[in-house]
Design a protein around this nucleic acid. Structure first.
Length: 444
RNA sequence: GGAAGAGUGGCAGAGCGGUUUAAUGCUACAGUCUUGAAAACUGUCGUGGGUGCGAGCCCACCGUGAGUUCGAAUCUCACCUCUUCCGCCA
């Protein structure tokens, strides 16, 4: 959420910043609602003060046994106007809130301005793609004989679900283990185990709701003391939905960052560094037709996530550090990659600045996203009311950062493609062998 | 899933329709005293918002949301969470 003070003080500047990322802010509606809010709020509070005062006088008078009918009549006259103002004020504040919840973060000044992913800027390229003296296969062709079982995934759940068997399943687990061990032991993150189902408030806190509900899987809960009833069109009747619905997390950024919700932490507890290995669930509405083959784009995938909660003056330092933490995984696995600074219109909703890590996929002859590391500055902290007590003892919003370290499924894809052998086997990367009974090759 | 009880400031805990500006204690911070520390004493000590150049003034918040009332921490209803017991289960 943007700082409403920034909108009040420098509306044009904010609008211009948002335009860079292709977002048209409705400043006309904002100004209209905001100016009415100001009038109504002031008037409401004046009336409340008057009422409080008179009610107190009634109390005094009654205690002394005096007649209160005169003043009671006077305060009764306030009632209707006050009620109307209170209702209107609530409406206006809700409207402003909804308006703000749907506005993305302001891009940092260091972010390249652009219109699409073609305007992203490559920062550095690390490692040299290997040359193969045989025809390279993509990960589906390499993986299928080794236990990557797309057919069973489709049978059980449908498109974009994968089943893994044998050494492929083990390699997948080894990757996740190696990643989380590295993040905890080498980079100082605290390992966490988190819920996979969360309530709406949690998702509002990190910015997935209210705008991106279509990208999420939602669990609807019924009050089982009532029969499930359908209306004439077969839809479930609203009145029997009593319990709060839950959502599957699209990333553990959600649960890790929300640990800070409604917290005020002491200065010396920063930075807070958390990591978790969880499945992630994405409905990916609108992605039909893209990456349909293989396991690049799945409804369910595993990810090791890094989250940092930092002092505002340290967040850009932390961003570079976290990119390094993600890079270290790729370096250890000896996978060629490049670092890209996303342009203004390619960044996610809550990000002020984002670096993507793209891994080399020889079959596609290109680099593909495998990690995304973002500084959200105070955007999430404002929604979360996540604060610390600063040097002067005042509360101040923290800055939040998150990044994948890494996406496990896509890393498996990269290993299968980059480590494939002419005979159809896959060489196990050195660092994973301790997790794989020192196995050197996965063979059909 | 069933039954009973409980949610008040950093913590403990009183208040159960109107002299409540939410008592009191503890912790914390500042000061006095002291060679220094402790003790004692004095003071400060929730969050968010509105308004004003500002000192300030004002509003809201006692788990959450509705309601009753001139007035709600206090009464009513719904929900959430926690505790204890029973049942079931990994």
């Amino acid at each position: 959420m943007l700082d409403i003070q920034a909108l009040r003080n420098d509306l044009d500047g904010v609008v211009a910043q948002l335009k860079k990322r292709g977002f048209e802010f409705d400043s006309e509606t904002f100004s209209k609602v905001e100016s009415e809010r100001k009038v109504v709020q002031t008037r409401t509070q004046d009336l409340q003060a008057k009422r409080n005062n008179m009610s107190k006088q009634i109390g005094f008078a009654k205690a002394k046994g005096e007649d209160t009918s005169g003043i009671m009549a006077e305060v009764a006259g306030l009632g209707e106007q006050l009620k109307a103002d209170e209702v209107r004020l609530f409406e206006l504040q809700t409207e402003l809130q909804n308006l703000l919840l749907n506005v993305p973060n302001l891009p940092s000044n260091s972010v390249p301005v652009g219109k699409s992913d073609e305007d992203n800027v490559e920062v550095r390229k690390v490692g040299t793609p290997a040359t193969f003296d045989f025809e390279v296969k993509d990960h589906t062709d390499v993986g299928t004989p080794l236990g990557l079982d797309f057919d069973t995934g489709i049978k059980l759940s449908g498109a974009r679900f994968t089943f893994m068997r044998g050494y492929i399943a083990k390699l997948h687990r080894a990757l996740a283990q190696f990643m989380i061990d590295t993040q905890t032991e080498k980079h100082g993150y605290e390992e966490c185990y988190t819920p996979y189902l969360v309530n709406a408030e949690t998702l509002i806190g990190t910015g997935q709701l209210p705008k991106f509900e279509a990208d999420l899987f939602k669990i609807i809960r019924f009050d089982d003391s009532q029969e499930v009833a359908l209306d004439s069109e077969g839809a479930i009747k609203n009145n029997i939905l009593k319990k709060e619905s839950l959502y599957l997390i699209p990333t553990s950024e959600v649960t890790l960052t929300n640990t800070m919700r409604d917290e005020i932490v002491p200065l010396d507890s920063l930075p807070i560094k958390l990591t978790a290995h969880t499945p992630c669930f994405r409905s990916e509405a609108g992605s039909h037709g893209r990456d349909t083959k293989g396991m690049i784009r799945q409804h369910q995938f595993d990810k090791v996530e890094m989250v940092q909660i930092v002092h505002p003056s340290k967040s850009y330092e932390a961003l570079e550090e976290m990119v390094g933490h993600a890079e270290n995984i790729l370096k250890a696995l000896e996978l060629p990659y490049r670092v890209v600074s996303l342009c203004t219109s390619d960044m996610g909703f809550g990000a002020a600045k984002t670096y993507d890590l793209e891994v080399w996929l020889p079959a596609q002859n290109t680099y593909r996203e495998i990690s995304s590391v973002s500084n959200c500055e105070a955007f999430q902290a404002r929604r979360l009311q996540a604060r610390f007590r600063n040097e002067a003892g005042k509360t101040e919003f923290v800055h939040t950062l998150n990044g994948s370290g890494l996406a496990v499924g896509r890393t498996l894809v990269a290993v299968l493609e980059n480590y494939q052998q002419a005979d159809g086997s896959v060489k196990v990367p050195e660092v994973l062998r301790p997790y794989m009974n020192n196995l050197e090759f996965i063979k059909p």
